[in-house]
Amino acid sequence: NITNLCPFDEVFNATRFASVYAWNRKRISNCVADYSVLYNFAPFFAFKCYGVSPTKLNDLCFTNVYADSFVIRGNEVSQIAPGQTGNIADYNYKLPDDFTGCVIAWNSNKLDSKVGGNYNYLYRLFRKSNLKPFERDISTEIYQAGNKPCNGVAGFNCYFPLRSYGFRPTYGVGHQPYRVVVLSFELLHAPATVCGPKKST
């Protein structure tokens, strides 16, 4: 009989979020998941679920829940969905086509923008091939755009693969920082350890 609540607040209220190319993952297990707390949290810009209804989450049990978190621009949030393409979905964070879970995003301009620009948040701009679902690539190898080998030196046709967002408070909404948490639900042939409040007695 599990009684402790799942530590969703640790994920959602973290002081610093990860850059999207180096997205953070927390495994959540052996706890009671009260999703209504999240669902009623006012400032969400997006709360979209795939393969599961957000209002039914509290009735369900899962083997594991993974909480992935990172920061992207407002106009990139739409790429955090199954079957998407674009710089983020291709080179930074890719969801599987059969994704079961929820994508939760909110504007973090007050936290993550600075006058003069916040350059701490990076994304991958160049990559030889697209990421596989949930693949994480933190390499900083110089990207070779031409035929000539770069030998690890940036220059003509040789690019550092990461780019900084440089968030400023005055940017338009599409270019403002958004914090994103992706909850993915794993249902294995194993005992369920993460259940909603109704199922955990």
Rank of each mutant, 00 (worst) to 15 (best):
N1I: 05
I2A: 14
N4S: 11
N4F: 07
L5H: 10
C6L: 01
F8A: 03
F8V: 04
F8K: 01
D9V: 13
D9G: 11
E10N: 06
V11T: 04
F12A: 04
F12W: 02
T15H: 07
T15V: 06
R16G: 07
R16F: 09
F17S: 04
A18D: 08
S19W: 00
V20N: 04
V20A: 06
Y21C: 02
Y21P: 04
A22V: 04
A22H: 09
N24I: 04
N24A: 09
N24W: 00
K26A: 07
K26S: 07
I28C: 04
I28N: 03
I28S: 01
S29R: 10
S29D: 09
S29C: 08
N30F: 03
V32N: 08
D34T: 04
Y35M: 15
Y39E: 15
Y39F: 15
Y39R: 15
N40E: 12
F41C: 08
F41W: 13
A42R: 12
A42Q: 12
P43C: 05
F44S: 11
F47C: 06
F47V: 10
C49A: 00
Y50R: 01
Y50D: 02
P54F: 15
T55K: 13
K56W: 02
K56R: 13
D59F: 06
D59V: 04
D59P: 03
D59T: 12
L60I: 09
L60N: 07
L60F: 08
C61S: 11
T63L: 07
T63K: 13
T63R: 11
N64Q: 11
N64K: 10
N64E: 11
N64W: 07
V65K: 01
Y66I: 11
S69G: 01
S69Y: 04
S69I: 01
V71L: 05
I72P: 02
I72S: 02
G74S: 06
E76W: 04
V77W: 02
V77Q: 04
S78L: 05
S78G: 11
S78R: 10
Q79D: 04
I80Q: 02
I80E: 03
A81D: 04
P82F: 00
G83R: 10
G83W: 03
T85W: 04
N87W: 10
N87R: 13
D90L: 07
D90H: 06
Y91C: 06
N92E: 02
N92L: 02
Y93A: 01
K94H: 07
L95D: 01
L95K: 01
P96T: 03
P96V: 00
P96D: 04
F99M: 01
F99R: 00
T100I: 14
G101Q: 00
G101N: 00
G101P: 00
C102Y: 00
V103G: 00
V103H: 00
W106V: 05
W106F: 11
W106K: 02
N107R: 06
N107L: 03
N107Y: 03
S108R: 01
N109M: 08
K110R: 11
L111D: 14
K114V: 12
K114L: 10
K114G: 11
V115L: 12
V115S: 14
G116Y: 09
G116P: 10
G117D: 10
G117V: 08
Y119D: 15
N120F: 07
L122E: 15
L122V: 13
Y123Q: 08
R124I: 04
F126H: 15
F126Q: 15
R127H: 05
K128T: 12
K128M: 08
S129M: 08
S129W: 07
N130Y: 10
K132L: 10
P133W: 02
F134C: 07
F134S: 08
F134A: 08
F134K: 06
F134T: 06
F134M: 08
F134P: 03
E135V: 05
E135K: 05
I138E: 14
I138C: 12
I138M: 13
S139K: 09
T140D: 12
T140F: 08
I142K: 07
I142C: 08
Y143N: 08
A145P: 08
A145K: 13
G146Q: 08
N147T: 15
C150Q: 06
N151T: 13
N151F: 10
N151A: 12
N151D: 14
N151P: 10
V153T: 14
V153R: 15
A154L: 13
G155S: 11
G155H: 08
F156C: 11
Y159Q: 13
Y159W: 12
F160I: 12
P161L: 03
L162W: 02
R163A: 13
R163L: 08
S164Q: 10
G166M: 09
G166D: 14
G166Y: 08
G166S: 12
F167I: 04
R168P: 04
P169L: 04
P169E: 10
P169T: 09
T170I: 07
Y171L: 15
Y171K: 12
Y171G: 13
G174R: 11
H175F: 13
Q176H: 05
Q176G: 05
P177M: 05
Y178A: 09
Y178V: 15
Y178N: 05
R179S: 02
R179W: 02
V181W: 02
V181G: 00
V181T: 02
L183D: 00
L183Y: 00
L183W: 00
L187V: 12
L188V: 14
L188S: 15
L188I: 12
H189G: 15
A190C: 08
A190M: 11
P191K: 14
P191N: 15
T193I: 08
T193P: 10
V194A: 10
C195Y: 09
C195V: 10
C195E: 12
G196D: 11
P197V: 15
P197W: 14
K198I: 12
K198L: 12
K198S: 14
K198V: 12
K198G: 15
T201W: 13
